[in-house]
Design a protein around this nucleic acid. Structure first.
Lengths: 354, 354
DNA sequence: TCCCTGCGGGAAAGGGCTTTCTCTGCGGTA
DNA sequence: TACCGCAGAGAAAGCCCTTTCCCGCAGGGA
């Protein structure tokens, strides 16, 4: 690889001058030398060694992000928001997938610290795990002690800047909607119970049912992986245990899609026999058939805000931004079927392509 | 940030010894010193500066990847394959999204070169753009001249290691299937015509039709963005121009989903009135209703192979691996409707959740 | 007793860049 | 004419590590 001194030598200047030209330093350089340097750069196809630059420069610029999986639409949307702000500010993003493995999450914090990121964003759900939380907080504290900025998305036991989707309110919305449609036997297809996302959404849901004088017993909840196959499998277990179910709440849209697959396999019409409500409103939600009724979270905006928090001026007190959830009515939630009468399939509501 | 010399000082040893302990060097260190160093590391929460390490070490380890967009399922799958091999070998992956912007692609090549990656994988489609291709090749050549390894996925005008999905064969498969079902009026919802992926798939399709004595006039092709909305829009234009169409080939699954959305909006039954065939077999393809008939590409495997090529021993001659395409029959492609008879909706074929 | 060997440790030389500090030479002022 | 100041260029000091090279010392063989 050509180095800066190669360029300098070829241009007949000192490395200092070459560096100044290449970085557009404020220190003035004669046009003639400038041109000679630029020519040498082009001829040698010179690209500065990023590591050497980062070592020599004082200020850190990159931002680290830890998500569960960028290819999961939930995180893809959040990342889009993060990226937008980062790009605007000329920051490089280092994105790490923890695949919901707490140990890997810890490792990535170290790794990103080692890479001298200016800030760190934890975009995955928090865990109900004291030992892990303590370790994570130690590492984050060490990082913050050296001037690193941290923001979390979701409920983590971390005192600092945070963007919180209102999962509880979202759960409540889903529950109220189904109650309003007359459902009593409501099953829940939940993500891993160790995630705060799961428990928060569940808590909101439970509150809605309780307010309506209904209840949500544990036997109507099935925990599984937070993805399509987890949803399919949990739905199957739920139906096996309780064939009377008239509605299913899936705690994210991927699981909801799995639930729809299982219902289809079993010949249960949605929403005529069983209603389904998802969570997140990922883009695909409107394209499944019937289009998914779900709870929308402002995912992109969450990313935008988290990045803004972390790149903005440090506030004395930790800032917490709660972002509301919103019910999106589509075609998978309908009135509870009248008992004792065989339900005939009705025409599906039309959907709009846009 | 604590540095290595801080650790050394605290442990009462030289930086050299500290480094040896931390990196598990082969050079032996007394247990006592070792423990003192380890203790100091823990107390100071020391994390080595990755940039300094990379600068000091001679060998480069990270691998750079340029994709169009990791959150696009097509690339998510490929990336999964890349990641698998990289992780096995303890390599860090730097993934960059070009968002199908050639200039950004060029910039990322520079950036990754600057970051001293050991290898570079171009996973996006190639472009029909001579100026761009020349620039790209120059940059890649410069990189390879300094010992960098390069592999491309898809057809790029780059002489070197490559993994090629057989897009042409896939297009052929789609065409033959529809011909076999009796379709004559076949429309194509295509991605940007500047992408080799588009033209290759189109070429295969055209060949199939030609062999059957049919043809594929330009007026039955609509080019749009390679995503859901592009597909929806192109389908609308196609139907407006030619309402007699009995089948649509979408050049990727995202577009196919957009096509289904438009057909649904217009009240056209799939596959009774219009058949649809997609391309790629992304995971969601089996979950839309009706489940999508499509052409499967071994996406994960493509990633695995590309990474293996690039991390394996350099072969004297460039290696090109062509991976076959396969037709996956699901529920969106059916026999051509008999003309002159109103088509009544039939029962949908059952699908299996798995 | 002396020398050689080998082990454990430290000194120091990079690795490629940025940036401060220093130096030279010029134009301008008194 | 003497001096000051400043513009433009270079010398050199880091930034934080790794790794080679070297040194001192203890043990073993002659």
């Amino acid at each position: 690889m050509a180095t800066l001194s190669d360029v300098a030598r070829r241009a007949g200047v000192s490395p200092a001058t070459a560096s100044r030209v290449i970085n557009g330093s404020s220190k003035p350089v004669t046009d003639e030398l400038r041109e000679r340097v630029l020519a040498a750069v082009a001829e040698l196809q010179y690209v500065p060694n990023a590591h050497a630059q980062l070592l020599a420069r004082s200020h850190r610029s990159a931002v680290g992000v830890i998500v569960h999986d960028v290819s999961d639409p939930y995180f893809a949307e959040i990342t889009r928001g993060l990226q937008r702000v980062a790009t605007d500010q000329g920051r490089l993003l280092m994105i790490c997938n923890s695949y919901r493995d707490p140990d890997r999450e810890l490792e990535y914090v170290e790794l990103l610290r080692g890479h001298q990121v200016a800030a760190l964003i934890l975009a995955g759900s928090g865990y109900h795990d004291e030992a892990f939380t303590r370790q994570l907080n130690e590492k984050l504290a060490a990082y913050e002690a050296t001037g690193g900025r941290v923001a979390v998305i979701g409920r983590h036991e971390h005192s600092g800047d945070a963007v919180m989707p209102d999962n509880r309110a979202g759960g409540y919305l889903a529950g109220r909607e189904l109650c309003g449609l007359g459902h009593r036997a409501i099953g829940v297809v939940a993500g891993p119970r160790i995630l705060t996302t799961t428990t928060d959404r569940l808590a909101g849901l439970r509150q809605a049912l309780t307010e309506q004088g209904r209840e949500l017993p544990e036997r109507r909840i099935r925990y599984a992986e937070f993805d399509r196959d987890g949803g399919a499998e949990a739905t199957a277990r739920l139906l096996d245990a309780d064939p009377e179910l008239t509605a299913i709440v899936a705690l994210n849209d991927s699981m909801a899609i799995g639930a729809l697959a299982t219902l289809r396999t079993r010949g249960l019409a949605v929403p005529q026999q069983v209603s389904v409500v998802g969570f997140d409103d990922m883009p695909i939600a409107r394209d499944v058939t019937p289009a998914l009724t779900t709870v929308r979270l402002p995912l992109v905006d969450m990313g935008v805000r988290a990045m803004s928090l972390v790149l903005g001026a440090g506030a004395p007190a930790p800032r917490v931004e709660v972002l509301g959830a919103e019910l999106v009515r589509r075609d998978t939630a309908g009135p509870v079927p009248r008992p004792g009468r065989a339900t005939a399939p009705r025409a599906r509501r039309g959907d709009t392509a846009s």
